[in-house]
Design a protein around this nucleic acid. Structure first.
Length: 218
DNA sequence: CACCAGGCAAGTA
DNA sequence: TACTTGCATGGT
């Protein structure tokens, strides 16, 4: 692997893309579905999120218009399988209320903001942290903010490519400071890192067969 | 049975 | 600033 950051990132991407091929993230039909998924997947296995979204869909509740009329108490039963359902129901309610009161229900206008303004707006909403915000910016608003998640951190820190004490913003800068802003590329890169982490870089799992060809001591 | 999953906010020192 | 804890279901 290269010691030059720009070349290293390209090399990692190319190896993963060659191994997995295009993953076509985010798995969602609409921007609002991306937003729901981004909130529901917080510290939760995607399988449980997919069940929750399927549940909303089968009840005809998978739209901003239908969901923004419900209270957290009414939302919670639909998303039970995603875990932390009381907190997440409140987060969804808070998000919908924000769009309703600050944007007159104009979800499209909200997402059409300048990238920095949108990210700041999202982060000001209770329940939306940096990863959720960046996921929404990239996959729902199609603006080039690189998404950092636990697998991104784990893969890069275990290789010694970044320090273990690196912060979210610093790790995001590590990527964005060495890559041209490119929405399809950012989408695919994050998807590849999550897939790699899911298969080869879990909390307590060795990675001898990882496509990056690494050998972890832990 | 224990541990973990595509985080975040609030509390403590 | 830098830890720690609560949140919760479902899979391994």
């Amino acid at each position: 692997m290269s010691t030059n950051r720009k070349e290293l990132l390209r090399e990692v991407y190319d190896k993963l893309f060659a191994f997995f091929g295009p993953l076509g993230w985010w798995p969602a039909e609409t921007p609002f579905e991306v937003i729901l998924g981004a909130i529901l997947t917080q510290n939760t296995a995607w399988k449980n999120v997919a069940a929750a979204i399927g549940n909303l869909r089968s009840h005809g509740m998978l739209s901003f218009e239908r969901l923004c009329g419900l209270s957290a108490q009414e939302i919670a039963p639909f998303i039970r399988s995603s875990g932390f359902y009381n907190q997440k129901a409140k987060k969804i309610e808070t998000f919908c209320t924000h769009i309703l009161t600050k944007w007159g229900g104009g979800l499209g206008e909200f997402l059409a903001q300048d990238m920095e303004a949108l990210r700041a707006d999202l982060l000001a909403i209770r329940g939306i942290g940096p990863e959720t915000a960046d996921s929404i910016v990239l996959y729902a608003a199609f603006k080039p903010s690189f998404v950092v998640d636990t697998y991104t951190y784990r893969i890069f820190s275990r290789h010694g490519w970044v320090d273990e004490s690196i912060s979210y913003e610093e790790l995001q800068d590590y990527f964005m400071g060495a890559m041209e802003p490119d929405v399809p590329f950012f989408k695919e890169f994050h998807a590849l890192l999550v897939r790699t982490g899911h298969l080869y870089c879990r909390k307590t799992a060795l990675c001898q067969s990882c496509p990056l060809n690494v050998f972890f001591s832990q």
